[in-house]
Design a protein around this nucleic acid. Sequence first.
DNA 1: CTATGTAAACAAC
DNA 2: GTTGTTTACATAG
Length: 770
Amino acid sequence: MKTSPRRPLILKRRRLPLPIQNAPGETSGEEPKRPPAQQEPGQAQASKEAAESSSCKFPAGIKIINHPTMPNTQVVAVPNNANIQSIITALTAKGKESGSSGPNKFILISCGGAPTHPPGPQPQAQTSNDPKRTEVVTETLGPKPAARDVNLPRPPGALPGQRWESCGMWSARQRAGGEAAGCTLDNSLTNIQWLGKMSSDGLGSSSIKQEMEEKENRHLEQSQVEEPPGASTSWQDSASERPPYSYMAMIQFAINSTERKRMTLKDIYTWIEDHFPYFKHIAKPGWKNSIRHNLSLHDMFVRETSANGKVSFWTIHPSANRYLTLDQVFKPLDPGAPQSPEHLESQQQKRPNPELRRNVTIKTELPLGARRKMKPLLPRVSSYLVPIQFPVNQSLVLQPSVKVPLPLAASLMSSELARHSKRVRIAPKVLLAEEGVAPLPATGPVQEDRLLLGEGLSPLLPVQSIKEEEPQPGEETPPLGRPIKVESPPLEEWPSPCLSVKEESSHSWEGSSHSPTPRPKKSYSGLKSPARCVSEMLVIKRREGREMSRSRRKQHLLPPCLDEPELLFSEGPGASQRATELPLPAESSEPASQLGYSQEEGGPFKTPIKETLPISSTPSKSVLPVTPESWRLTPPAKGGGLDFSPVQPPQAAFGPLPDSLGPTDFSTTPLKSIPLFDSPRELLNSEPFDLTSDPFSTSSPSDMEVPKPHSPGPEVAGLSANRSLTEGLVLDTMNDSLSKILLDISFPGLEEDPLGPDSINWAQFIPELW
DNA sequence: CTATGTAAACAAC
DNA sequence: GTTGTTTACATAG
């Protein structure tokens, strides 16, 4: 597929059969795996049917009302279990029929309904039911061309209970499953999956891809360490070709394929061999040396020792972990089916294009084999859209929580960033030194990315950190000295409590702090105390060091913060507090806010480092250009391209979200849709959160009642209690675009009603919703 | 320069 | 021999 530049992919995708309702969202279901690209036919049909019928008629439960203030715009309340695709198809037909003179824009919002999805668990977040949501914000989806899929967040499997972490847009494929899985974010912001998902989750149900992904993930996870070789099948064909992923990326895939997100060296070897036959059959034996070399070299890989000290597990520093999984990345290219740009490689690396989103253009492939069947997806950067991070999953609705915005913003930012710049790295690598940040789950200073991402998985962090424990029960950790070696430097380095990080010995910078060991290598510890460190340090040691020798030492992670975007809220840094301490996801309380800043964190982190990140991964250097440093993210992964940014969804943040608001009436809020921005960036610039802007064409100012404050942070925060954000879709049949939007719902009841007089009481229009 | 990939020397088990 | 850490070199971008 190519993408036309403007045409929203989504629409295209629409054609595909999405799984409908039912979605499979659940994990359970699972469909058989299908190739990613396509969906099942059957479904497709179904959708068609729906569509057709729909042209005018829509499934039961769907409510359509004219938007009070926006011309040619109708608000469509879709039951959760409805097949969103069908609805979209029908609406599109309807809009086309109407042409410019009639309703040609539709704002879809979930109104509850039987949830198809997963039954069970719902995250707290969900509450989808609330209907109240209305308007606003934006998003991005779409338009852009390349987008691939946005994933919606929740993995089916994810348990609500666990906080889901939604990974936000990025898919979280990983199921969290029991563990925390992290979410994986996909890096690709572009995924469209969300569509599918929406259905399931929010609107409809199903997302095809996700499922697929999940499946894969499952495999991975299940197999965790060892999977059956077959799993990777996708590739198999290409077996003999060298995978387009760097060792770093493969290691991440391997580690992230496990629930615990840790793996022994041997298992890493095994996983790689199983998934990439090339290494099993063709590569020289030296590849293992390279794996080890990469593990030692990159700070993002942290070695943890079991409690008893007998077993070493390699983990990915939470701050740097983008939770990449093979599925996310890889897609078989088929000759026939070209994947689209999307897949392209991410490569960031390779492609110089700055802007191009990877998508399209790129494809690049690796030099090597030139084409590999596997395509690397994109990674980190997002393409245009950033997905929203809300946990959309289930319901579209975002949680009302106030904070939400931030996260979103963050996410957006990140994505954007990515876009703009070249690759943004979302997940920065943290410099170790600097890092401090990361790990902390709870306390820590912010973790930037993680937060963003999703750390949500909160569990992850903790888990990981904890990891020690589990493993060997027996041992346990001795607290004190656990067997492990931790050498971590004192706080500074990694703040995170949990994780262990390795330290670097070398860092001079850090050196200072840490002490002791002559050479510290990494350490990990289990928990470290919570010290948070300040990242201030940040120094970059990095290479800068030439100090070090020239050789490369470990690549440090950058502090995420740095990268992070403060952007979102551009404004203000001030506003944001950086959360230094953000609570963990778990904490919940205010997740969002936290998240938000998390990004900002940058502060803490920031990487001084040269702009370029020292880090290893690296996507590209380019990053900078675009955005200055504000966020520069570092991509951790360098993998050939794959770095995926870690983007993490802020799930946690959301997760916690309260459902709190009950539905109340909201008053109005006009919707603002998001225009399709070409670039996410635009969105951002445009004030992401600002509700004000109206995407849709016109937007009437009036409409915008939304708070929108300009100031980002605040804004978000600003949402008053009576308001909530939720996610919705804007279908513009004039442009054939489908965009995600955040709806800001306000509840009129409250005195405060920000909206003001103007506001509209949606309840009046769509009682069902509320 | 940076990111990667390789190879290899060493050290600790 | 395995696992880890580090150096060196080489190469592509």
